[in-house]
Design a protein around this nucleic acid. Structure first.
Lengths: 144, 144
DNA sequence: TATTGTTATACTCTATAACTATA
DNA sequence: TATAGTTATAGAGTATAACAATA
């Protein structure tokens, strides 16, 4: 007696569809605000792993981002070429490459993070401030 | 005076990271529950476009999913080979292929949608029922 | 001329396998 | 033997270009 005759399963109400399109919109916003820094959202993700903690090895960076260590090589090559980070052999274990932000890298991360904050605010702007907080908390809960 | 000395921008709190990982978890849940039907989450998305409305052309299906029409061909080939849908030339415009669910396809969609509902419930289970509703509404708002 | 479906091709992203060096 | 970084290679997924049929 309710809505049996309506479309029972609109694609636009599925979580998978909604996640994909929310991520696409956020991607576009990031493309815009990060362009001045010469990096994209994914590269900022790499840089965020390098901030506020003991400089990790390449392998550790890859693990924290959930990508293969072979994929990490080109990713770091690009950022090293831009002068954003540097690689040095680990003192005690010379198999490892310690990855560190340069001064320019630290400055880039700081400013790019502010730009990313702006992109996130823009995405969440249809929600009231308390709803924004609830949404973020809920997303953090289900994403683990 | 607040948290300047703490990690200022943990990767695990960024919306992009959270969307990616929430989508990954949902993908895994879908892989499990959809396996009995021989389709994956993406293919179910195609089928959902075909339900509850005038049978669309291949091009229309592609547009609604936001993929190129050349990409649609192989996607539909697979589902047609499984006997889930059929293609017929449009009566008035024979350039078009009208895409329709078969009886088996309709049954598959109905049962696969229930399985997908279960996957979504599972993903949202850390939230209280009212929070689940709020999260879904918020996501729909920001995804457009 | 423009559009739909199709195929061939190329590009992007990523992982697997194999190699070097270090442990 | 095992691990970290690197390179070469292959696979999945996707779009662009070109073509045939149709409008």
């Amino acid at each position: 007696m309710s809505n049996d005759s309506e479309a029972p399963s609109q694609i636009g109400t599925r979580l998978g569809y909604l996640f994909k399109h929310a991520a696409l919109r956020l991607q576009e916003l990031h493309d815009q605000v990060l362009a001045p820094f010469g990096i994209d959202a994914r590269q900022l993700g790499v840089l965020l792993v390098l901030t506020g903690q003991e400089p990790p090895s390449q392998h550790q960076v890859a693990q924290r981002l959930g990508v293969d260590r072979t994929t990490m090589v080109a990713l770091l090559d690009t950022l090293e070429d831009k002068g954003i980070l540097s690689r040095h052999p680990h003192k005690q274990d010379r198999r490892r490459n310690v990855v560190e932000l340069t001064e320019h890298g630290k400055d880039t991360v700081r400013r790019a993070t502010q730009a990313s904050d702006e992109a996130e605010r823009s995405l969440l702007s249809p929600l009231s401030p308390p709803d924004q907080k609830r949404f973020r908390d809920a997303l953090q809960l289900i994403a683990h």
